[in-house]
Design a protein around this nucleic acid. Structure first.
Length: 362
DNA sequence: CTCATTTGACCTCT
DNA sequence: AGAGGTCAAATGAG
């Protein structure tokens, strides 16, 4: 395993070198190509080793969490809604598991391949995007909405209709406050709510908390389904750009090779995007202190209202303290990087952490 | 004090 | 004109 880690670190170093010399070698496609190939080879090698390792004895997902939902039903006759919830949560929890286990080679490979036009297809997801019709994605210029700008006193209203629209349906939380949609790893700020004609439930409007800071255009609309109050229809508009900003709080790297789009499809909600800059990601791998698993800043940002921090549950989450919600909390509120909840699900992680106190940043 | 939510008013689109 | 989306003042929590 040590050899694999050093292999990954070597790959990270190569990637960083490539980034540093990007400006110089931009005019030398052949050099670039060779560097990329080298990096891919290193990470592919590491991935291969990790894969072999996983098939061996290392990968021990929680039997309850990572079992196929249909198996669960067979054995336990579980409520279909709960089953679905488990299905999506499993994906989420599995993602978490990968993140916390630091299976970075796949992530790096996915990232690099996506950067150079490749791509890694991940396994099956839980929920599908129902419509992503608009391909005419265009940035909305806040200075000119193209309409109503004649008004001098009033700020023109910007309508985000042109932004790419992705609709997903997610099950409501089964425990705790079911009024709120499950966490999706991003920090949202509610800016409106509206009764919709013909709908029993109001539609809530959210935008990225970092909109002002980083001009992040991401928005989402959440509406409870009329025919199934245990599900929410969530419409995402615009991509998160907050984590791409040079000054934006660093988000932890996403699950292996998962893009924001894919993550949304898989668990019905977005995850911190794989588009996180290569440099930051490499920094995350190597860390200022050299420890794999992330710098204190990146982890802190994740839990303290950074790009990855949950906010929708922040207030609402103060409802009664349900013991059983601890696990659900760990799954849905993945953005909070809650160490405690993660330990709840994966005791092995906490053991690992105790074994490596140097990883703990103070 | 800062930041998030609420909510009525306003704006845009059809 | 009406519906949907957004703004921004008021309010409240931490």
């Amino acid at each position: 395993m040590d050899g694999t880690i050093s292999l990954i670190l070597h790959g990270c170093k190569l990637a960083k070198d490539l980034e540093l010399n990007l400006a110089n070698s931009a005019t030398q496609p052949e050099t670039l190509s060779r560097s990329c190939e080298e990096i891919i080879r290193v990470f592919a090698n590491a991935k291969e080793r990790l894969h072999v390792h996983q098939l061996g004895t290392t990968f021990y997902p929680h039997p309850m969490l990572f079992r196929e939902p249909q198996d669960l039903q067979q054995q336990q006759n579980i409520d279909p809604i709960l089953q679905e919830w488990l299905g999506t949560s499993c994906t989420s929890a599995e993602t978490l598991f990968h993140q916390t286990q630091g299976v970075m080679a796949e992530s790096a490979l996915g990232l690099i391949e996506s950067k150079i036009g490749g791509g890694i297809q991940m396994g099956s997801g839980g929920l599908a995007i129902e419509s992503g019709s608009r391909s005419d994605v265009q940035a909305v210029d806040a200075s000119d909405s193209g309409r109503g700008s004649s008004s001098s006193s009033k700020r023109p209203r910007i309508r985000n209709d042109d932004a790419e629209k992705r609709t997903v349906r997610v099950p409501a939380q089964q425990f705790g406050n079911t009024e709120i949609p499950p966490e999706d790893g991003f920090s949202w700020r509610k800016y409106g709510q509206k009764e919709i004609l013909g709908s029993k439930f109001p539609r809530a409007y959210y935008r990225c908390t970092n909109q002002n800071l980083y001009h992040c255009p991401a928005k989402k609309q959440v509406q409870r389904l009329d025919d199934d109050p245990y599900r929410f229809e969530v419409v995402y508009r615009g991509e998160h750009t907050c984590h791409l900003s040079a000054t934006a709080p660093a988000a932890p790297p996403p699950a292996p090779g998962i893009t924001q789009e894919m993550a949304q499809t898989m668990i019905g909600q977005p995850q911190p995007s794989a588009a996180t800059s290569l440099g930051r990601w490499v920094e995350f791998c190597l860390g200022p202190g050299g420890g794999a698993g992330g710098s204190s800043s990146s982890m802190a940002a994740g839990s303290s209202g950074g790009a990855a921090g949950p906010s929708t549950a922040g207030r609402y989450g103060k409802e009664a303290d349900y013991p059983i919600t601890d696990m659900a909390d760990a799954m849905f509120n993945s953005g909070s990087s809650s160490t405690n909840s993660m330990e709840l699900i994966f005791p092995s992680i906490s053991e690992e952490k105790r074994d490596r106190p140097s990883d703990k940043n103070n």
